[in-house]
Design a protein around this nucleic acid. Structure first.
Lengths: 322, 322
DNA sequence: TCAAAAGTGTTATCCTTACACCCATGT
DNA sequence: ACATGGGTGTAAGGATAACACTTTTGA
């Protein structure tokens, strides 16, 4: 990152220039016993967040400070997700903006220093329709499909009806379409638009039908979480980021289980191993483990050197039809 | 996009909360006679930008307003690039932050309503080393390689020397490595770190050697432009965004020339056509054109319908060895 | 001996890349 | 006729996906 003095910029005083509050908000991911986990605060209904302060040396430092303060957790890998603006912060006479800058961070759950492990919650508590490791979850054909189709039929025009059905079909893989694990955000937004998630009907006592399964969060936190999951599911394929979530030494099956947990799909074991080893992403430690039943597995570590050697790819997903 | 009321968020008053200025800044891209163009203001040394105001309905609306106001240009496709924070805005006693939110926008140069066409400048004025359409530009072996190697040799430790050489080699394709057109930002940052671009030595009268070719810009605008180019070069491959830059009706060669201009590389014509047509991205209008010499070419239009039908890919780059 | 997990070998398929060639028009 | 760009056929090569099978341990 570069440091540069900001030159005065031509400013044409066309309106009321004003100041804004800046909020930092983090999707912190780690592997836990209960699957891929997001770090939460409050009643597990909020992501760690806090205002960006003058004492913070940079946006990233501010984020680290807040996460550490609220959860006792030190962060490793961080990348920016998205910035959005909400108008009219409640309860103020003078109009004011809130700018929210969201980040994706990857760590290992053990890196928490003091605080509770209860802060980790599985992604799939919030998005039960996203876990396809044991096949298509029953919530999709059982609940989502009928309610989304009902929503589509509610449309005014015939064209919109078709368009809604098509969008839902693509996002959720109806009518024999393939499941695309990266469309996490589109799926959440569709459910929001169809007023099937609690966040969409909050306040307005309009909803006749009960919300669908999946824990809601405050404000738009669940949408930000969806954005983070989508980003990670996509990134994992073209950049070796999984290793940020792994212990220093691991077996190939552990690595595979992690990728499967993140992508929500099962992988083909022999091909997965070959892909990883072909790319020289890992090296044998020489040790083996016999933690579980079965033949002892070789232990591997990530070859950090690959990051310097070339532009590295991530873990392709050799899907299994199972 | 969803609208949601913002709930009060737990705020732990740990420091001096404060307000910040929010700036919007745009990388606006269109095809011009002189290659892929970026919309500039001032003496072609700045990107359109301005403060986010209360009157703006959203960040995107604010951006549109500023670009239209400064350049008379209406924007179509817009996506967010990156948000960064600079400390210590000059000339103020009370410390203040500036948050800059940058965007990438795609349009057609003809969409400018009133103002001058001189505002469009070719990317390659700012990044002459990025245009590989006529082979490796001479500036790379002639100027950049020796100066980057000299910079590498300046390193204190032997390890750092090797690491610098390796980074430069990967970024610029030294020693027979492949050219990777997506590394626009890495290349600029490397040149900045090596103090070869004017922005890096500005103010500090330290530089003995003259800056390399390539027009500088104010503040960090050239870095933001590099970010935009990198994003577009990557995105073009997996999402059909080129069409935002095309007229409503075009020939396949025109489309190819556009992709080539953006990626800075030549493509293999027969394979390019097949890739495009295979994916049903375009449909024939039935008309032909005989604008130039040679056999008249069929005219095509973008099939907007594909955006609804499925998750669509972009234009893969069937590279030509020429 | 069986279950469970670690591994290896090989084939089928598809996608990309490359080469070779023919077509239609203006000068 | 030839230059220029439009357009088609097809084969080679590589990457992925699938299947079949062997190995090593603990219960």
């Amino acid at each position: 990152m570069q440091k540069q003095a900001i030159a005065t910029r031509k400013e044409e005083p066309s309106g009321k220039a004003h100041d804004a509050n800046v909020d930092l908000i983090a999707v912190v991911v780690a592997m836990t016993e209960h699957g891929p986990g997001a770090l939460t605060v409050g009643r597990a209904d909020a992501l760690p967040s806090g205002p960006f302060e003058l004492s913070h040396r940079s946006l990233q430092f501010g984020l680290r400070a807040w996460v550490e303060h609220q959860t006792g957790h030190q962060l490793g890998y961080i990348e920016q997700l998205y910035t959005f603006a909400d108008r009219d912060r409640i309860g103020e006479q003078r109009q004011q903006r809130v700018i929210s800058i969201s980040y994706l961070a990857l760590t290992r759950a053990e890196h928490a220093v003091g605080s509770s492990k209860r802060a980790w919650r599985s992604w799939y508590d919030y998005f039960p329709w996203e876990d396809h490791r044991s096949g298509v979850p029953s919530i999709i054909p059982g609940i989502l499909q009928p309610r989304l189709l009902a929503w589509a039929d509610d449309a005014g025009h015939d064209v919109e009806r078709r368009e809604r059905r098509q969008r839902a079909g693509i996002a959720f893989g109806f009518d024999g379409r393939d499941w695309n694990e990266e469309l996490v955000l589109q799926r959440y937004e569709l459910l929001y638009e169809a007023a099937l998630v609690e966040e969409a009907v909050r306040g307005s006592e309009l909803s006749a039908s009960p919300p669908i399964p999946g824990t809601p969060m405050i404000a738009d936190h669940r949408r930000i979480l969806a954005t983070g999951i989508a980003r990670l599911r996509s990134k994992i394929k073209y950049r070796p980021v999984v290793f940020e979530l792994m212990p220093p030494v691991f077996t190939l099956l552990q690595l595979q289980r992690t990728v499967e947990a993140l992508s929500g799909r099962l992988l083909h074991k022999p091909n997965f191993r070959r892909l990883i080893e072909q790319q020289d992403l890992v090296e044998e430690t020489g040790e083996t483990t016999s933690d579980t039943v079965g033949r002892p597995a070789k232990l591997f570590r990530f070859r950090h050197a690959v990051l310097d050697e070339r532009v590295v790819a991530g873990t392709k997903l050799p899907l299994s039809r199972a």
